[in-house]
Amino acid sequence: MPGQRSISEAEKLAEAKLGGIRIRREQMAVVANIYRAASAVRQHLENSVLRGADLTWTAFVVLWVVWVWGESETRHVAEEAGISKGTLTGVSRTLESRGLLRRIDHPTDGRLVLLALTKEGEDFMRRVFPAFNDEEAFVTGRLSDAECRTLAEGLRRVVLQVEEDGEERRRSLLGGEEPAPRRSGRRARS
């Protein structure tokens, strides 16, 4: 984006700042660039195809999860979408009000709710996803198909590392303690 520092410039500044600190620079660069790439791609998609469809990134991901997996319990949709159940409640209500999603009582457990796409939601995803995929092709346009496959496989391995070994690592780092509750960033009132 114009006016912002380039990736190369940010990496050079980090290198200068870290100087003699013993770190794993290649791994730092991977994680930093995963974050930067994810942010850039999300922003591009939200400001292009999703804006035209009047969707947020989160709303699109919820629709995608339900479209791909079919009728699903809300807890599973929230987990797959990487959002809290509270966030899912607001997003699903919005999508329901637009006629794209429906909430269904669980047939055997009254405490649970299922989400499913409506006919309009199915049609909507069939219409919007090709445009979304065109933008996926745009943002990866400097990569060959082989590079896309290699990068996708490398990112899958990063995800598997965290999914399969992350909990044990967190417990080790915290001395067996549970992590402190997340804070909103606001200071407690006196």
Rank of each mutant, 00 (worst) to 15 (best):
P2C: 05
Q4S: 10
A10I: 02
L13G: 09
A16N: 14
A16I: 11
A16S: 15
K17V: 14
K17N: 12
G19R: 15
G20F: 04
R22Q: 15
I23Q: 02
R24P: 04
R24L: 08
R25G: 14
E26K: 10
Q27F: 11
V30W: 12
V30E: 13
V31M: 09
V31R: 05
A38S: 14
A40W: 01
V41Y: 08
H44K: 03
E46L: 06
E46S: 01
N47Y: 07
S48F: 04
S48A: 07
V49R: 09
V49E: 08
L50D: 01
G52T: 03
G52M: 01
D54S: 13
T56C: 04
T56V: 06
T56Y: 00
W57N: 05
A59S: 15
V61T: 11
V61E: 02
V61A: 01
V61C: 03
L63C: 10
L63Y: 11
W64K: 09
V65A: 09
V66D: 05
V66M: 03
W67D: 15
W69G: 06
S72Q: 13
S72G: 06
E73W: 05
T74N: 08
R75A: 08
H76V: 08
V77S: 12
A78P: 04
A78K: 05
A78R: 05
E79N: 15
E79K: 15
E80D: 02
A81M: 02
I83P: 07
I83E: 08
S84G: 15
K85S: 11
T87R: 09
L88T: 07
L88D: 01
V91M: 03
S92L: 11
R93K: 08
R93S: 09
T94N: 14
S97F: 03
L101W: 13
L101F: 11
L101N: 13
R102L: 11
H106Q: 01
H106G: 09
P107G: 05
T108C: 06
G110F: 09
L112S: 00
L112C: 00
L114C: 05
L114M: 09
L117W: 04
L117E: 02
T118F: 09
E120M: 02
E120G: 08
E122T: 04
D123R: 15
D123T: 11
F124Y: 12
F124S: 11
R126T: 06
R126P: 00
R126D: 12
R127L: 14
R127D: 15
V128Q: 10
V128A: 11
V128M: 11
V128R: 10
P130T: 12
A131Q: 12
A131C: 05
F132Q: 02
F132G: 01
N133C: 01
N133K: 14
D134E: 04
T140F: 11
G141Y: 02
R142S: 09
S144D: 08
S144L: 02
C148D: 10
G154C: 04
G154K: 04
R156P: 00
R156W: 06
R156G: 04
V159W: 01
V159G: 08
V159S: 04
L160K: 12
Q161L: 14
Q161D: 14
Q161W: 13
Q161T: 15
V162G: 14
E163D: 06
E163P: 00
E164M: 12
G166E: 03
E167G: 05
E167H: 03
E167N: 07
R170T: 01
S172P: 07
G175C: 09
G176K: 07
E177R: 13
E178G: 00
P179G: 10
A180E: 08
R182T: 01
R189H: 09
